[in-house]
Design a protein around this nucleic acid. Structure first.
Lengths: 250, 250
DNA sequence: TTGCTCCTTTGGTCTAGTCCAGATTTGAAC
DNA sequence: GTTCAAATCTGGACTAGACCAAAGGAGCAA
């Protein structure tokens, strides 16, 4: 009766073996695994097969890979509610994690057609773009690009953009978040995004696009958030919106 | 127009080449690509390299693979709002797509610890499990498992479960959806899930877990939805909740 | 038509390498 | 200590195959 159908493939055995090590805490989150070459010797096989096992574990979010640096045990996912527009720093610290923000660039650009549509702008409008890289407990997990209307936030690019934009909006411009809208797309990382997230070109990522409105229902800005897919779990509760609204009205 | 950028890698060239064919509509959504062997001959390379290109395109949602059947051009994603609990059939037809539902199993089981927590049940409770496979324009895209409290829906397993559960709840039991809560996890497909979705073990998928409440705030049921990641785009608008609530109150 | 085999095609799994580019480390010069 | 170049280590890209299992089609029989 208790015929445990052994997963026959070699890659599956490697996977099980590594998972046991992780589950038993012998391999702690963030710790580097032995190199693909070492693992292939250890399991008496080739790099190809080891890689296959690692890719499947990566898809599940058990391990992650940093380009040419190695494979690591994945920490627990950050729980994230894109509707809940509180300062990101707060979300992170509430979960007892540590956040680090790097401003990669901030400039004024001509909006792409997609952007014009998202921000309800006429074609060839200029927008401010702020690109920031976020690290969770020292690990790069998110590349966020914010796009804002220049006339709405004059001179914002002169401020320190490594702090919370939410706070900056409110304190410097008296703008507060109201409702918002978001979209989630599982997609692949290319070019700058892949580089910044230390991913190989074509790796699967999660793209979260938010459009945010102020207390008067006017569009404030939008974000394109490129997440390492193993680093996040999206959670949305329709009841939480009640609380949010209460806060906004205060 | 069609500028072939000199992306260095061979896999990137194959990708660009295939993408051009798709973009130019020479390869229509749902059409089968030549086999990996044929492509490797065509591009004068090996299956390994062709596969690398295809995997990257799959991650992006441009193509998809069905286990031992071949590679196909991916149709547009279904836009889906997990908070908006209208009959799934309706969501699909509104987007001019065709839905097919197969009931894979319906039975009473002992709830797993996770399930007990989600449904706020005491340990070792029994729940009804309904497993359904959904096809979009003939293609398998979603495996959904519904878990419901038996005492809440006596004899429900005797009904035709290929129709809308929302409608069945309302018409047979007078239960209507109120608020809900959902979670999105990018993860990997194993065992039955992989088989049902015609995926290879360890392929990346999207797991959407919903907990649904009735008009009185009592838990009705929960779903575990295993989506082919290329088939769906999640869209949530906090304003839409206003409309929803208005509907519920009527 | 229905059911059944058998064969072909397909991707899945795996071997055993090679060469390359970027990241890291090491160690010597300053 | 600091700086910088060289050596080493890592995964990325790629070759050229092999065998396997499942899907699908062809053809035959009831």
């Amino acid at each position: 009766m208790a015929t445990i159908e052994r997963n026959t493939t070699l890659a599956a055995q490697i996977r099980q073996s590594l998972e046991m090590q992780i589950d038993s805490k012998l391999l702690q989150p963030g710790v580097k695994l032995p190199s693909e070459r070492e693992l292939s010797e250890l399991f008496d096989t080739t790099r190809t097969t080891v890689k296959e096992a690692l890719l499947a574990m990566e898809a599940e979010g058990r391990v992650y890979c940093e380009d040419r640096r190695g494979w690591f045990v994945a920490p627990p996912r950050l729980i994230y509610n894109p509707l809940y527009r509180s300062p990101f720093h707060q979300i992170v610290t509430e979960q007892k994690r540590q956040l680090e923000t790097l401003v990669l660039s901030s400039r004024t650009i001509v909006a792409t057609p997609t952007l014009c549509q998202e921000l309800a702008l006429p074609t060839l409008s200029r927008v401010n773009e702020v690109t920031r890289l976020r690290k969770l407990d020292g690990r790069v997990v998110l590349l966020a690009r914010h796009y804002l209307k220049p006339e709405r936030f004059p001179g914002i690019l002169e401020h320190d953009l490594s702090q919370s934009l939410t706070t900056l909006y409110e304190q410097q411009y008296g703008v507060r978040y109201g409702r918002s809208r978001f979209e989630i797309n599982p997609t692949a990382a290319w070019g700058e995004v892949a580089q910044a997230l230390m991913l190989t070109e074509g790796s699967p990522i999660l793209l979260i696009s938010c459009v945010n409105y102020d207390q008067h229902g006017e569009i404030i800005d939008c974000d394109h958030e490129y997440w390492r897919h193993d680093a996040v779990r999206i959670l949305v509760d329709s009841q939480e919106l009640e609380r949010m609204k209460a806060n906004t009205l205060l």
